[in-house]
Design a protein around this nucleic acid. Sequence first.
DNA 1: CTTTTGTATGTTATATCGTAACACGTCAAG
DNA 2: CTTGACGTGTTACGATATAACATACAAAAG
Lengths: 165, 165
Amino acid sequence: MQSPPDPTLAFERHDHGCCLRDTLARAEEVATRAGARLTPVRRRALEILLEEHRAMGAYEVLEKLAEGGFGSQPPVAYRALEFLVDHGLAHKVRRLNAFAACMHPGEDHAPVFLICRACNAVAEAEGQGVRAALDDAAEVAGFRVERANIEALGLCPACAKVLNE
Amino acid sequence: MQSPPDPTLAFERHDHGCCLRDTLARAEEVATRAGARLTPVRRRALEILLEEHRAMGAYEVLEKLAEGGFGSQPPVAYRALEFLVDHGLAHKVRRLNAFAACMHPGEDHAPVFLICRACNAVAEAEGQGVRAALDDAAEVAGFRVERANIEALGLCPACAKVLNE
DNA sequence: CTTTTGTATGTTATATCGTAACACGTCAAG
DNA sequence: CTTGACGTGTTACGATATAACATACAAAAG
């Protein structure tokens, strides 16, 4: 494993190689079940997001794809990422114009993103309750929610601690 | 009187001149109270957002500012818009890379944006409940939310009706 | 097995969104 | 009347994203 000592996607340490292989395997399954093909570029793009385990810009992903012998032009990355997002294998974090691998592919979940304004780490938290509240709020306006982006900016536990000293 | 019976930057018709003048007046007050200056460019930028009553890209706002004799380079618009956002007089809708005037300047509120995927209309709904749920979800991760972006994509009532026919 | 059809990949070129850095003007505080 | 903070304007550029077209490739139809 090469994983650097970064926080991310959860604010806690964890077994990385495990969550990578595991998630990748589930991703494969999700794609198959949807009748979609997790082709080499797409698979590699997902791997990249999982390896780094943080939110990455499309151009950053592109660079790593190119290193692996794939195309080096923006559409290559954007298309792979779009596929991943469409199939729930990755999420777009709009505040950062970045993408992050989904930690719960296949499971029916409502992710909310917690973005640390100090270290830029992004955690994907469970937001069923938030989503339910959103559906309620939308209903008042006669609006039916199909997709939602819920993102919070603040301080992660580690940075909050440091800044308080 | 303020507060019409609409659910805000809404999917319904309403008295426009009224909500414009009214909101503008309150904005002036908010700025003054914050010790900030609602200068001509800034005021005009807000007017533009209020007149059109929809989410607008920075370059679109810029164009209209230029028509009014203001500078025609991007920073002019971005700075005015940043001021408005910082002072709670406008919001950024990240899904659209666009800005919308706040319909409740000064009031303590937690906006959620309802974006119609068919007609691109944006409604600003009240999201106190959503925000509370978000705070709860964040707390589980030891994260303290400072700012949040909550955006929903779906169909507005009008478009939903049309598409069902 | 071949043709057809739809999908995936790659490329060039360009659109769209956003910011850094600096010059100038105004105004209020010292 | 100078200094310093702020606001506006400019040029130049960086970052993000997509359109349009060519080629390859795989699954379905013949």
